[in-house]
Structures are given as structure tokens and as C-alpha cells.
Design a protein around this nucleic acid. Structure first.
Length: 271
DNA sequence: CTGATCGCCTGAGAGC
DNA sequence: TGCTCTCAGGCGATCA
């Protein structure tokens, strides 16, 4: 489900309400991608101080340690005063004095990992190789251009890899490359400078707009209150194979890169 | 170091 | 209705 905007919307929808809550009970469902790393019951009594984000990881900072929560492909979180008993795909439930936090994740590519210190494994293992935050001031045009310089990998896969800039998933990668007029298979180091500049601003603009719109709901995204976003109504190429390009009318094409579908307009995206 | 491939797991939808 | 097949918004591990 989630790319960066969805994770950020989830964060915003839960952060202020859960902050200050003290954990009263922890319930685990089926195993997720990685083990929690700690006896779940030892979380009882700790306080949730704040909720941050790094890339697509939600960071629930406790008064002692942090919970790193990743939503994987199909995860979503809910937060409410009360929630029904856990269902088959509810794999992590945190009862706090401020409400109930729940991770729902049918495919279980997601994870909840406890780290006692952000500067040591497993936190560093998961976070240290992540690229720059696209909505931060660190994501400036010059560093983006130089980070991409010389790369032989297709530009689409550079965006998806997250080592240059985090948070651009499959949908947004397709969309921003369309906006920048860049063919997704072009080797990153070969993309013209002026197109990279357009790409840089498109990443900022698209992700910012998606957050403001409440995230994408291509399938089933909803924030922690169950509110759905509506960014999918703005998709230009993603999922549009065979449909006319909104700019030139050429049928949108699909290709496979690294086992992931890429959608693009063969006429508008040549660089 | 870079670049390419693998596989984790379940559900939805299409086609027969 | 029910089966089989394809596809799905991520990403760390592993190998050349």
C-alpha cells in the first residue's frame, strides 16, 4: 500500500493523539517480516513520547527505546479509542491510555521492530543506508544531480531503490518520470541535466501534493482514522496501460523493470 | 563498491 | 460456483 505520502499521512493522523499515552497491553498476531526483538510484555508501562518518520518507517519514540513500524506492501495502521478484537490480519495491537493502535497487514511484508537506541542496530541496520528525505531542505537540486551522476542503473530503479532519495515508490516513480519527460529505462547518469532538474522539482511537488491530498488510494489506503485519500484521481500513467496519454493521446505502455511494472508514455518520455 | 535477482505472504480479479 | 493464473503501493539478502 504505502509510499512516503501514505506513511506521512498515517503519521500525522496518529502522532498528536497517541503522544503521551502509556502502553497498557501488547497483542501480537502472526509473525511479520522480522521479530520484534524484545518480549512484547516488557513494553507495558512505557510511554509513547512522539511519532516520527524516516523514509517509509514510522518511528514510535518511547520514553525508553523506539518502535520502528514498516507497512510493507499491504499494511495500514488504525488508532481509535476502541477497536474490534483483532482479526486474522491484525498482527500488532498496542493498548495505550490514549487509545488503541493497530497494524493490519495481510501480506505481512511489514514489520514492527524494537530498538533500544537509534544509533545502534537494529535501528542503524534498517535506516542508515536510506537516501535523503525528499520533503526536507537536504533534498536540493545540486546534490540530487551529483548523487545520480555516473549511475548505470535505469533512472526508474534508482528512484525505487531509495539510496538517493527515499519514499518514491512504484506509483510516484512512474508519475514523476512522466512529469519530467524521462523514459524510465534511461540510465540515470545519462539523463540530461535539465531533465534532472525537472525531476527533482516534480518529486517535491508530487509528494507534497499527495500528502496534502491525504495519500493515494489506488487500492485500499486509509489513514489511522479510516479516512481515505484521493490522490489516485491525479495519476497520469500508473495503471493506465493502453489508455490515451492525457498530454498527447499516445497509448500508455507498460514494461517490467526489476520485477516491477513501469507505466509511461512512449511519446512524452524520450529523454 | 555497483548492479541484478530472489523471495517473503496473502488477496483480488480475470479468464475459463 | 470454483478453479487456475497473474498481479500487487517494499526492500533486505545474496550473488556476480
Amino acid at each position: 500500500m504505502p509510499e512516503l505520502p501514505e506513511v506521512e499521512v498515517a503519521r500525522q493522523s496518529v502522532a498528536n493523539r497517541i503522544a503521551g499515552g502509556v502502553i497498557q497491553a501488547v497483542r501480537m498476531g502472526k509473525p511479520l517480516r522480522w521479530p520484534l526483538q524484545i518480549d512484547p510484555q516488557s513494553l507495558v508501562g512505557r510511554q509513547v513520547v512522539s511519532v516520527g518518520r524516516r523514509g517509509k518507517y514510522l518511528l514510535f519514540h518511547l520514553d525508553d527505546g523506539v518502535l520502528l513500524v514498516h507497512l510493507g506492501m499491504s499494511g495500514s495502521i488504525r488508532f481509535a479509542d476502541r477497536l474490534p478484537p483483532p482479526g486474522a490480519h491484525d498482527h500488532f495491537t498496542l493498548d495505550t491510555t490514549h487509545g488503541v493502535l493497530r497494524l493490519h497487514d495481510p501480506r505481512r511484508f511489514g514489520a514492527v521492530v524494537y530498538a533500544s537506541d537509534m544509533n545502534e542496530p537494529p535501528a542503524t541496520t534498517l535506516l542508515s543506508r536510506l537516501g535523503v528525505e525528499p520533503l526536507s531542505a537536504d533534498f536540493d537540486e545540486a546534490s540530487f544531480v551529483s548523487a545520480v551522476r555516473g549511475k548505470q542503473t535505469p533512472i526508474k530503479q534508482v528512484l525505487l531503490a531509495g539510496s538517493v532519495v527515499v519514499g518514491v515508490g512504484n506509483i510516484y516513480a512512474c508519475e514523476v518520470l512522466f512529469l519530467a519527460g524521462i523514459h524510465p529505462a534511461t540510465r540515470a547518469g545519462k539523463v540530461a541535466r535539465y531533465r534532472l532538474r525537472t525531476l527533482h522539482s516534480a518529486i517535491k511537488a508530487v509528494l507534497t501534493a499527495a500528502v496534502a491530498a491525504g495519500g493515494s488510494t489506488l487500492r485500499d489506503f486509509s489513514d489511522a482514522n479510516g479516512e481515505t485519500g484521493h490522490f489516485q484521481t491525479h495519476a497520469r500513467v500508473y495503471g493506465k496501460e493502453g489508455q490515451a496519454c492525457t498530454v498527447c493521446g499516445t497509448p500508455i505502455k507498460r514494461l517490467i523493470q526489476g520485477q516491477r511494472s513501469t507505466y509511461f508514455c512512449p511519446n512524452c518520455q524520450r529523454g
